[in-house]
Design a protein around this nucleic acid. Sequence first.
RNA 1: GCGGACGUGGCGGAACGGUAGACGCAGCGGACUUAAAAUCCGCUGGGGGAGACCUCGUGCGGGUUCGAGUCCCGCCGUCCGCACCA
Length: 906
Amino acid sequence: MMSNGTNHFAASEPDLMTADRYNARVAEPRWQKTWEERAIFATANDDPRPKYYVLEMFPYPSGRIHMGHVRNYTMGDVVARYKRAKGFKVLHPMGWDAFGMPAENAAMAHKVHPREWTYANIATMKAQLKSMGLSLDWQREIATCDPAYYMHQQRMFLDFLKAGLVERKTSKVNWDPVDQTVLANEQVIDGRGWRSGALVEQRELTQWFFKITRFSEDLLAALDRLDRWPEKVRTMQRNWIGRSEGLHVRFALDPATTPNHESELEIFTTRHDTLFGAKFMGLSADHPLARAAAAKNPALAAFIAECKRMGTAQEAIDKAEKLGFDTGIRAIHPFDPSWRLPVYVANFVLMEYGTGAIFGCPAHDQRDLDFVNKYDLGNTPVVCPEGQDPATFVITDEAYVGDGRMINSRFLDGMTFAQAQEEVAKRLETEIRGGAPVGRRETMYRLRDWGVSRQRYWGCPIPVIHCPSCGVVPVPAAELPVRLPDDVDFDRPGNPLDRHPSWKHVACPQCGGKATRETDTMDTFVDSSWYFARFTDPWIATSPTDRAAVDSWLPVDQYIGGIEHAILHLLYSRFFTRAMKATGHAGLDEPFAGLFTQGMVVHETYRKADGTFASPSEVEIKTLIESTVEDPTSGFKSTSSIRVATLTGTDIPVEIGPIEKMSKSKRNTVDPDEIMGSYGADTARWFMLSDSPPDRDVIWSEEGVQGAARFVQRVWRLIGEAAAVAATGDLPRPALFGEPATALRKAAHQALSRVSEDIEKLRFNRCVAHVYELANTFQTSLTAAGGDPPADYRWAVREAASILVRLFHPMMPHLAEECWAALGAAGLVAEAEWPEVEADLLVEDTVTLPVQINGKKRGDVTVPRTAGKAEVEAAVLALDAVQRALGGAAPKKVIVVPHRIVNVVA
RNA sequence: GCGGACGUGGCGGAACGGUAGACGCAGCGGACUUAAAAUCCGCUGGGGGAGACCUCGUGCGGGUUCGAGUCCCGCCGUCCGCACCA
């Protein structure tokens, strides 16, 4: 009975089911119902047991869950179920990151209201998550677009405002001049708006900011204490915060060259040691001096306008060709009044960092070097690497950024980089000009304040009112939430809140005069910066958090999500928690004690002859024998095979392409519903955890899933066999175990010990391997024991089966319940305790040590576990291989690493 | 461009500085079957040898060490993030 065209999930046709097959499609919903009816995953805040909070990053309700969700939530569920078995009260909630642009895009494309679209998606995805068998407390479900959630966010915004943690200032946005709307960086493609195709401009807007920079130092310093975070995430955050010790330097300007007799230009530098290598000064296009100069120079004004066409993405700015424009202004070198430096407006100088002005030392900065090479301004090396001859050291295309000795730098010559920095700083600090020092040391951070204003509808309204006489007035607490109006249209570009006929027009809460609401909504990162706190008591209506609940549950013990959130979401949440502490809404600084970042789910791509992609469900893979070579003397045949793909049910070939992140555009997605519908949730969960380490990408493959499905059936048969011979009732534990029983018990306890350790460390792929190993050993043992084994063995079988089922329960919970019931065990395995390891069973009486000669393995010795060094050495020297290698001579050295290895140096 | 990671059989991967390739997938041989599926048993890094064994092998080039996939230096390649996607 071959598959008939569309069916590439042939394994699960219901009519193939027989009594000895496990039918996931029937069993899974049944157990899900049982769990729900008994409410065993609902968590009570007043439960006295020790707490464990496991959280996976909540999903954006985009429509349907994808394989990335399956992986993420499976991992979290393993931890939650394991910790529950270990006796913790576990908080494992789920919610929806429900505000965001896709809902507005859907509104524009399909004339469906963002709210309807969002809640329909939530309903679909919730049903999908439920079919995964996750041990979630759904009573605590929240959606960030619910006024019952965002009213608290508005309240905290106002509390932050009062506490001085919010401010208004200008910043740049991508402006689409045709659509008359602000664009996200992802909506800017090659410098053009994605919808209109118009060239994007930078535009200045007054916006709301959270003052995250207030916590720069603390956010940086506290990273050292987050010892259950991946080192790479901490490194990324450190670099993002970007602390650097630098120097502000006031350069005098030649007044004859300045537009309005400006007399100085202040720059910030971290490389003041290279001052004698300076070749030019660079101004940001937004620098006041640049603007002043542009006012009198139309060509410069045109250049500045050109710079503003670059959009706001850092990547685009960095990658763009380095361009500049000579303003004609000349700066005077701080150590040589006769040295003039040209002042350029340069497209790579940022107004947001430092003072918006730099001095350029091309020999030791790649951007500066690219710049001078373009404008022929020359370069002079001033730092010479150790071992290089200063006389011949030249820089051409590659800047030297390493350490070395100062050259071509007058009084700095011969100093190290650090000495030179100190010397320059000291001299400029003590030099007074116009009543202030020329140089001033300062610690700077790359981190910028968090701009939270979005000119969009589907977000949390910013609860302030603008009054012509009173200024910015907070919305009174009693009037919260400021709700989004429902009657909006998306026919036209721009912010629907801004053009709504009545919504924004209100009376000023202070003077009662005519005023308008803020029409900006908050960045959706705000919504996700405190949801973990709300989960601890999502019911409280009078405040964002219940302090007793939030302080007892937080920090999250294990947070799991994608590496793509390594910086922004995690850093914003760390800030927000501090801000909540400052305003009395929480009592701690760090929200996530343990963090794990999981890899992506990737899949092969399939390309048809016309260049378009085919989806995995349209493709059939066959393994063909490419060639068979027969050895003429031995008759041994060796073959090489090749995988080929065709459109299912046809001979039309399809090219198997590279393995890439699952995406709609590459059509290499696999629908979790289809997988769970045909194989069951446990198979999908098991496959997600097997093979690949959880922090790396996992390749989804049909073969792999089938392997997982086969294992499900194998376990079911194994447990069936075990149940048939296992001791039942209250058979007492035998005083002595025979050899087969002991061997089985050792295997079970060893697996138990290893799985426990690996779950604690989130090494799920190794857990899977250990479960496979135990299942293999168990099967072999049962087969060898035959039909009527002795009582001690039957006792061991019951123990091993009970351990095995509990070991894979966190990963395949439905199958585990079914097996648990088949074994006649009491209650639900979901409520069973984690088994206890019997340590004696992990220790062997003898150890077998590999023996190396000069570092290469040449044999083994088996010695008593208690053997001393001399005893081991004697046994090793007696080995034939060692005797042969030594040829009668004494060894130069024998290294014995107890219980591990012996190395004989001949 | 800046920042971060990763690189081991045909494939995914395992390996406190200590036997490289656990476990799985794919493949091959066999058992069962009228046949297939399913299942079970065995083999499976390259080269050599009848054989116990020998030899080469963890992206490339050096180094440290009794011993390096693992540590150090320098390359090459691939992937991710970059502040208005979530």
